[in-house]
Computed example of a mutant assay.
Amino acid sequence: MTRRQEQLLAFDRLLTIMDELREQCPWDKKQTMETLRHLTIEEVYELGDAILDKDLDEVKKELGDVLLHIVFYARIASEHKAFDIADVCVSICDKLVERHPHIYGDVKVENEEDVKRNWEQIKLKEKGKTSVLQGVPKSLPAMVKANRIQDKVAGVGFDWEHPEQVYEKVEEELAELKVEVAKGDADKMESELGDVLFSIINYARFLKINPENALERTNKKFIKRFQYLEVKSREINVPLSEMTLDEMDVFWEEAKKV
C-alpha cells in the first residue's frame, strides 16, 4: 500500500467516525455551526501556539482538532443538503488551480511578489468582488486585520517602495501622537496611537516579519521573566508588592540570562 493510499484510508476513517458520532453521540448530535464556531477559533489559536513553540508533535494533534472541525461543518451542511466534504475539496482545488495560472496556465512570474499580485487581481475578477479588501474578515483581531489589509492593498500596487519610507512614516506618526498626548485629548490620542500601530505593522511587513508572531514572542519572553521574578520573590519571602522597582530589576536582569 502506498503512502497516498494510507492517507486516503485515514481520511475515510475520520469521515466514518464523524458520521457515527453525529448519529449516536448526544453531544455531537446537538452541535450546530454556530455552537462550533467559538470552539474552532480556540482550536486554531491552540494550533498557533504549538507552531510558535515549535512543538511538532503538538502541531500534529492540533491539526487533527482543526481537521475534525472542518469535517464536522461539512457533515452538518450535508444534512441540510447544502454541500458535503467532497464539495469542500472540489471548491478549494478549483480555486487553487484558478489562482495559480503560472502553474496551471501560461502566465509567467518572476518571484513570489508577482504571485501575490496575480492572486489579488484574480480575486477581484471573481463574481461579487468589488473591493480588494472584501476578503478581510470583519472579526479578525485588529493586528491581524491590519496586516491582511496592508498585504492586500500591496498586492494591487498600493504600497511604499522602500522600508526607509515606511520607517519615516512611523516616526511621523509618533511625532503626531506626542503632540496629541501633550494636548490631553483622549479621542485624538487613541486615533494617533492607532496610526502609530498601523505604521509599525506596515514596517514589520517590509522587514518580512509577522507582527503577530513578533508580539507573541515578546509576550512569552515577558511571561517567562516575570514568572522568574515571582519565584525569586517567594524564595526570599518578600511579596512583589513590597519590593522596590530596583530590587525587582535585579531579578529581572537575572531572568534575561536564564
Rank of each mutant, 00 (worst) to 15 (best):
R117Y: 05
I103R: 12
Q134L: 12
V170H: 12
V166T: 05
F158P: 10
A86E: 09
D114L: 07
E120I: 07
V115F: 04
Q121C: 10
K127P: 03
K108F: 01
V66G: 09
I70V: 14
L67F: 08
N111A: 07
D94C: 13
V107N: 09
F158E: 12
W119T: 12
K127D: 13
D94M: 15
A86Y: 11
E98N: 13
M143G: 08
E110G: 14
E112Y: 14
E98G: 14
K123S: 15
K123I: 06
L96E: 08
Q165A: 14
A142R: 03
D84G: 01
L96C: 14
V109W: 01
K138G: 10
E161H: 07
D65A: 04
Q165R: 07
V90D: 12
G157V: 02
H102P: 05
H100P: 01
H162A: 04
G157A: 12
V90N: 08
K108I: 07
Q121V: 12
N118E: 10
F83N: 07
E126L: 06
K129R: 09
L124S: 08
A77P: 07
F83P: 14
T130W: 09
S91E: 06
H80Q: 13
A142S: 11
W119G: 03
E79P: 05
F83E: 09
V66C: 07
L124W: 01
V156K: 04
I122Y: 02
E112Q: 14
C89K: 12
E161D: 09
D87Q: 05
N118F: 04
L67K: 14
D106H: 10
V109L: 08
V166S: 01
L124K: 04
A74L: 01
Y167M: 15
Y167C: 11
V144L: 06
V97D: 07
D65P: 02
V136N: 01
C93M: 11
L124R: 04
V166F: 02
E168P: 09
M143T: 08
A74K: 01
D94E: 14
S91D: 06
L96H: 14
A154G: 07
K108R: 11
R148H: 06
L67A: 15
V71S: 03
S139K: 09
A154I: 01
E110R: 15
D106F: 10
D106L: 12
K169Q: 13
V90P: 09
D87I: 06
P163V: 07
H162E: 08
Q121H: 12
A142C: 03
P163Q: 09
K125C: 00
S91P: 01
G135C: 04
N147E: 09
C89P: 03
A142K: 07
G105M: 04
P101N: 05
L68G: 13
P101V: 06
L67M: 11
K116V: 14
I103N: 05
I92Y: 04
K81Y: 04
S131F: 04
W119Q: 13
N147A: 10
Y73V: 03
